[in-house]
Structures are given as C-alpha cells and as structure tokens.
C-alpha cells in the first residue's frame, strides 16, 4: 500500500496538502484549490478577511502553514452556502446590508458562524462582566466577538443587526 499523503478535508472533500511547506492555508485554498471566496486582506493576521473554520474553530488562514493541517476539516465560505441556497447568516447579511464592497464578508460570515458555536459553548469574552458566567449575546458582546474582522466600509452596525437576527432566531428555535 502506498503511504498516505498528508490530506485535509475542505468543505467535505479530501484534498492533498501542498508539498512546499511555505504555502499558507490561505494561498493553498485560493491558488491551488481555486476557492477564492476566502480573501487576502492584510496577509498578517490583522484584518480577518482570510477567516476560515478548522475543525469548527475560526482562524486566520494567512498565518497558518497548510502543511500543518494534516487530518483537519476545513470549512470555507463556499461550504457555508451557495448563491442558490444561502445560509441563514448570508441571508441576514443581505437583508441588513451587512456590507458595502463585500471584500470582508466571507471572513465576517465564517467568523460569525464560529462565534455562534462559541456562545453556545459558553465561552466568555473581554467584555463579559464575570468570565465564569454564561455569556449573554448583547450588542456589546457581539461587537467584541467580531473585533477580529475589520470592515473598512464601516458596515459594522448592520453586521451586528444581521447577527442579532440570526442569534435571536436560534434562541427561539
């Protein structure tokens, strides 16, 4: 049997990781796999445009070497929804105008999806009054938890409105 090549699952599909260890996860997704939904903003972990989910957790793909993701499950914006079948977060971003140019939006939506999982697990944030208590998703909490995603158009208030709608709907479900 041939040795197994280092592989990661991207949006459910097995993909062989690049041989060049310099390849970042971001460049691998965009250039080698053609998944250009994930955006390169600053390329230094300061803007969040490159946010993807690795085993359900949001990370900056620009600061991660692809070769370190053997066995990982990676989800990009292409795995979250499609133009014909938008995810609830995507619909809410559209209905609340949660963007202008749209460049940061894939990262914002990946980040928001992980944020909801973190809230469900009870993770505290820097604005939680008591770090040991279960967090309440106030607008202040949502703003702090989205601070890793910059939007130079300044659509922040509409992004928070979109998040509140989806999180509110989840709470009612």
């Amino acid at each position: 049997m041939a040795p197994t090549l280092p592989t990661a699952h991207v949006n459910g599909q097995p993909q062989t990781l690049p041989l060049d260890p310099r390849r970042t996860l971001l460049d691998w997704l965009r250039h080698d796999l053609g998944l250009t939904g994930t955006k390169k903003g600053c390329d230094h972990g300061q803007c969040g445009a490159c946010t993807v989910l690795v085993d359900g957790k949001r990370i900056n793909s620009c600061l991660s070497l692809a070769a370190l993701h053997d066995g990982d499950s990676i989800e990009t914006i292409e795995g979250i929804g499609t133009p014909d079948a938008l995810a609830p977060l995507q619909k809410a971003f559209v209905s609340h105008d949660g963007y202008q140019c749209g460049y940061c939006t894939p990262g914002q939506i990946c980040s928001a999806k992980a944020l909801m999982a973190e809230l469900a697990q009870g993770w505290p944030s820097a604005v939680s009054a008591d770090v040991a208590a279960r967090p309440i998703p106030t607008a202040e909490e949502l703003r702090e938890r989205m601070s890793g995603n910059l939007c130079r158009c300044g659509a922040y208030s509409n992004i928070i409105a979109a998040l509140k709608e989806v999180i509110g709907a989840e709470a009612l479900a």
Partner: peptide, 25 residues
C-alpha cells in the same frame, strides 16, 4: 480562557487572554 477551572479560580488569566488579539488568533 474557556476552561471553567481557569475562569473560576484564576479569572485574571482568562481576562488577560481575552483582552489580547482576536478570537481567530
């Protein structure tokens, strides 16, 4: 910072970590 032992008994550590960087980092 999410570990309940840290949050309850060494909250200073959880607070400091959460004050740094971004959730992604």
């Amino acid at each position: 910072a999410a570990d309940m032992r840290v949050r309850q008994d060494w909250p200073l550590l959880a607070q400091a970590i959460l004050a740094g960087a971004s959730p992604q980092l």
